[in-house]
Write a protein that binds this DNA or RNA. Structure first.
Lengths: 347, 347
DNA sequence: TTGTACGCGTTATCAG
DNA sequence: CTGATAACGCGTACAA
């Protein structure tokens, strides 16, 4: 495979200095048109492509931001990468995908990795933070010593970082409240990952919301993803007799909701008549299910877009510690049974 | 924000040469244990993180492969990135996301970009190739002069490149054939993007399959994505009277199929009894719809995994021009009405 | 307007 | 086992 020609080759062949070649390829104005033309000709002839690695070494800028996520299997993180990509592109930046190595929290190798890459900034999606607050604090401090960081859903309010906070808590609360308003009294929560921060947030929101409404919460069933959602529903129903079974479920996310709905249809239970379902995330497929899925939009796109903007605008400087909250709004569709205009909301 | 310390600082403070520091941090065996210990101590104390950019400059290796795609909105490309990411990670490589700038084909700036980044290789997903064969050929030649390339679904058999070919043609054919076997005679194709290569492949497969079965093809309706699928179905039905309407549709992909199914349910038409539906792509949500979606698995994951492997194993050398085909298999579920064991296949 | 020369932070080579 | 030094390819003061 052909060797890349470098700036020296071009300079020599064009009979000018490397400085001039550099000026030509970076569109510096102060170069005689004729010289420019000649250099460009040689550049074209030899197929010269300036080495951005070398340039970056000197300029201390990679024009690249990293996005760290636990797994792209989950479309939630896929959407995050997608949004980050789109917005970065507008700003003439690039995105590098950085999976967290260990399931459930990153270790110090990730910090080494990120710092070694000299990225211009990094977005940490919430679930990649270490469990132990002490570790999280230490890693973040180490990282932020050298690199701008934005954390999506920081696990801890005390953590010194720029944190964008999705309202998972409020989303769960509105969902439960909405179902209550529709007349439901036996409301279950379905799914959640063991020990995940967001999960515990949603779970505690569920438990507290139920308590405030003087309702008895159902035991939580772990699940993430469609297949697990299918199983979790079965497990939920097998835990109680038919008379005491929930009349409504709030799923951990839209995937779990989808799995649950599938299982319900298999069992011959109609959504929303026999069982109301509310998801969480507002994934693309929600409006197109039958019945369409009531879910909670977390405005994660806004958050990611802001994250990317913060990182780029920081210009390599530390982003001051702060929190910015994003509102969650319930997207009321059919699966919750709130057929607007057909049914009395407060029956 | 703190400056990164460099290898000189460490060397001086540890009282050794930069060469020794380099050997220590890269685990070179020939260094006295005591020296190593001492250096590591200084490294730890000062928070030294070797600059991979600088290392890459010398080693001419970025440990990064690029994935070029038209848009991450479409989960098909999301899955591609995800798979590439996972497999690259196993081989200790990284993935950089590279959107094609222009809708419908990349221009020469993309080549400049890729070459400038000195990536270790690049996967071009099919739809990013230029329309005009002449341009495609030229860009690919330019790119492959310096960088290993694998093309997913190359638009042209003559194109000199390593091409992984998904069997979109065969997938469409099996779908039509399957519906025919189930007794359908009025089979429509729904969706496709204007001028896209894969699209035209599927479209021509549809037309030819219908011809071979002595059936009259329905006029093609453009669509991609769920929302467009919804509309396309309406358009399809409005083009013919009720007696002549199709009894089965093959969708351009699973997104279009989902949109179509939604619209059908809105119109009160039952899938598969009133209308059989087959998708294409085998997206994650298919098994969990009601009815579950019959679709065509293209083994795109296998292809991408192989692409990444090829690129990494090429070690920077040109990958010989070749074609490797991936089989497509029909995932028969409920939406086509072939309820196995319930209905006679060859009625 | 153009050229010289140095620095960016590593690693590899070669001599000791 | 260790050190000195030359690449790697580019940008940019500074001088001309």
């Amino acid at each position: 495979m052909a060797q890349h020609v470098n700036i020296y080759t071009i300079a020599k062949e064009a009979g000018v200095s490397t400085a001039t070649v550099s000026r030509v390829v970076s569109n510096h104005p102060s170069v005689r048109p004729e010289t420019r033309r000649k250099v460009l000709e040689i550049v074209e002839k030899n197929g010269y492509h300036p080495n951005q690695i070398a340039a970056g070494l000197l300029k201390k800028k990679t024009h690249t931001i990293g996005v760290v996520f636990p797994s792209l299997e989950n479309p939630f993180y896929g959407a995050i990468c997608s949004t980050a990509q789109q917005y970065a592109q507008q700003m003439n930046y690039f995105v590098q995908l950085l999976p967290s190595m260990r399931r459930g929290g990153y270790d110090s190798t990730l910090v080494e990795l990120l710092l070694g890459k000299r990225l211009d900034g990094v977005v940490l999606s919430g679930d990649v933070m270490p469990r132990e607050p002490e570790n999280a604090r230490r890693m973040l401090r180490q990282l932020q010593k050298y690199m701008p960081v934005v954390v999506l859903n920081p696990p801890d309010d005390q953590l010194e970082c720029a944190g964008l906070v999705l309202d998972l808590w409020g989303g769960m609360q509105s969902s439960v409240q909405h179902l209550y308003t529709l007349g439901h009294r036996r409301i279950a929560m379905l799914g959640g990952s063991v020990g995940a921060n967001e999960a515990s947030s949603r779970e505690s929101a569920y438990l507290q919301s139920m308590r405030e409404l003087a309702l008895r919460p159902f035991p939580l069933v772990q699940a993430d993803g469609c297949a697990e959602g299918e199983n979790a529903l079965l497990q939920l129903l097998s835990n109680c007799d038919a008379e005491q079974r929930p009349t409504a479920i709030v799923a951990f996310n839209d995937l779990v909701a989808l799995g649950a709905m599938r299982q319900l249809s298999r069992l011959g239970l109609k959504v929303p008549d026999d069982m109301a379902v509310i998801g969480c995330d507002n994934q693309f497929f929600g409006p197109f299910l039958t019945p369409s899925l009531t879910t909670c939009d977390l405005h994660v796109n806004d958050a990611i877009q802001y994250a990317v903007r913060l990182l780029i605008q920081s210009e390599g400087e530390l982003i001051p510690s702060m929190r910015r909250k994003y509102e969650s709004v319930l997207m009321i569709r059919e699966s919750c049974g709130a057929q607007l205009g057909k049914r009395n909301f407060c029956q």
